[in-house]
Design a protein around this nucleic acid. Structure first.
Lengths: 340, 340
DNA sequence: TCCTTCATTGGAACCGCTTCCAGTCGACCA
DNA sequence: TGGTCGACTGGAAGCGGTTCCAATGAAGGA
């Protein structure tokens, strides 16, 4: 029985105990260079006895890499970023990299986060979710040569994994059109900080495009970009449904908002899908539970794929600065049907 | 215009440019010791020009602290751990600490995670969520004197933030009893790895206690500990509802399982709450949407509180090794009522 | 048998920052 | 006016690893 060491063993302790130099211990540790079998054994024994583990901080300083990947994302609150993080976690699970999480709720904190990450060499690579890093920070990143992949965002000089939000907006709207709807309203996010990716905005564009393609004029009073919350979406939906000429279908830029629409309809005694069709976007878990028709985007997959690209870059095969677009699926459930 | 430096500035570069010693730069940086105003200005100017940021890795090595807090948790998949992490993130947002995330899906990976954290000095402190660290790892942690707080778990030698699961089980069951129900079934998790906290098990105990206190025998066929998933819960609920003498109420150990019960009832044409009362546990977001009666536990708060305790310990006021029990609330919504 | 080659090995420099320990020097006190 | 004090300042020693480079010695080739 060895006495419990009061302080954790360092490499010099191991070297001393094994009667070798520290360089040799390091060689054994990293399986680099050649070490005589007998020597190796003695070193391993010393390591075991002393319960030695190399300090990752010291390694990081010496090797100039931290084995940490930073994940910057807004609003851990919401369901979709979480799902993306899950993908990231999964992809990184079998890699040697740890994950450092940076939740930013404001442009201000985003600045701080990027500054931290690009400058302080805390991380070897960066995954940025649904955020558009300022040019200045992109410059810093590439100056520090720390690779960065965007997920659900786009920048000229960075590889990214995205979906086609415009196409998705068209997909949803066209589906409603194909069902025969002509009075189709849209509920989306209100324009947020400029640093946040505006997927909702693009979906609006897709919506308008589909209508235009079908020669249906876009009605101002049918397009409501005012909220992200279910609660507010509900209020907005109520307004829409009380219009002299209410829509027969609503396309919500997110499932969360679509849930608000469903609540509004329920509250007003309007039957879905009999009197009103509702389609969402994202396909979060709740959607399948309530039977919401929606456009499914591969959230988990986006995180996984982004992490993969980053790992590649870290391995020295820098991902080309290109945009990888993930496919969307129309998931038809019970909240849509042809108008009466 | 300065030429863009090919390599990030280090403290020596700043010192050289300002014409001072590195010690002085460090003093300015950390506002420690005394530096003449004029000197300080020159240093700050050099820092600005060179866009210098101290390397946190080097600082960590020198100071023996990393400013990183590790969060170990199982199954990022589930809603409740996420909500807890949100609380942690919030509490740590205004602190200088970063968050490193360790998702463990198996006892094996848990071992690895703890080993990593306790030995490699990657983190200054640890938050463990819904996991029971093995004694061996607890020993390592205290040997390395890195503070650790458990959230939703318990260990003799570590401070922790928990809820009273037994009490919660009683609360839910007693509520159903008070409504007049006598045939009350229970659906819970199947026993998992020993390293995972078994909150479901305790809720079962509470359930049994409440029944016993009301002099109602616990029926074997009414207690089903078999799943965590909604899907399986649905199957189990269907079996229950098809019994010759079906329960008039079901207490599910989690909201997710309660949703499965609701689906089962819907599928069998059994009206909730008219013919069947259902109560869940947790109060996840979806619960309010579907109007599920449930026992609310402060998930977000648990994370926040755990992080606070850890910060205190990090500040040198080690939290006493005690258990902090957070309050539970009965949230009555639309899925419960007296039996016919 | 002498020289070259190569497997092994240890020493020391370096990664970038903090801080102890002296050393300088002008100001103030007796 | 000499001495003491204290504000400033710089050098150098770590922190705990990795790795270049030189040294050692035995084996293989001529």
């Amino acid at each position: 029985m060895e006495a419990v060491p009061t302080t954790p063993a360092k490499i010099a302790d191991v070297a001393a105990r094994a009667g070798v130099g520290i360089a040799t211990v390091s060689r054994v540790l990293n399986e680099r260079g050649s070490v005589a079998a007998a020597t190796r054994e003695r070193v391993l024994e010393a390591i075991r006895v002393l319960e030695y583990r190399p300090s990752s901080v010291a390694q990081a300083l010496s090797l100039k890499r931290t084995l940490v990947i930073g994940v910057v994302l807004p609003f851990l609150t919401e369901a979709s970023p979480i799902e993306r993080v899950r993908g990231v976690v999964t992809a990184l699970a079998s890699s040697p990299y740890d994950i450092a999480l940076y939740d930013v709720e404001s442009a201000d904190r985003q600045q701080r986060a990027f500054r931290l990450l690009a400058d302080a060499h805390r991380t070897d690579g960066l995954l940025v979710v649904s955020l558009i890093p300022p040019d200045e920070e992109v410059r810093r990143l590439s100056a520090g040569s720390i690779p960065c992949v965007l997920i659900d965002a786009h920048h000229d000089r960075l590889p990214s994994v995205v979906i086609d939000d415009i196409g998705g907006g068209e997909l949803a709207t066209r589906y409603l059109l194909d069902l025969g709807h002509r009075r189709i309203a849209f509920i989306g996010d209100k324009p947020a900080d400029p640093f946040r990716r505006q997927s909702s905005r693009d979906r609006t564009i897709g919506y308008e495009r589909a209508l235009t393609a079908a020669s249906i004029p876009v009605r101002r009073d049918y397009v409501r970009e005012g909220t992200q919350s279910r609660h507010l979406a509900r209020n907005i939906a109520e307004e829409l449904l009380r219009l002299p000429e209410p829509p027969s279908a609503v396309f919500a830029a997110s499932d969360v908002q679509a849930l608000g629409v469903l609540e509004a309809a329920r509250g007003l005694g309007i039957d879905v899908p009999e009197q009103l069709s509702v389609i969402g976007f994202d396909d979060i878990e709740i959607a399948s539970y309530v039977g919401l028709t929606t456009v499914r985007q591969p959230l988990f997959e986006s995180g996984r794929r982004g992490a993969e690209l980053l790992l590649q870059a870290l391995l020295g095969q820098p991902a080309p600065v290109h945009v990888e677009t993930l496919p969307l699926d129309l998931v038809v459930r019970g909240t849509t049907r042809p108008p009466r």
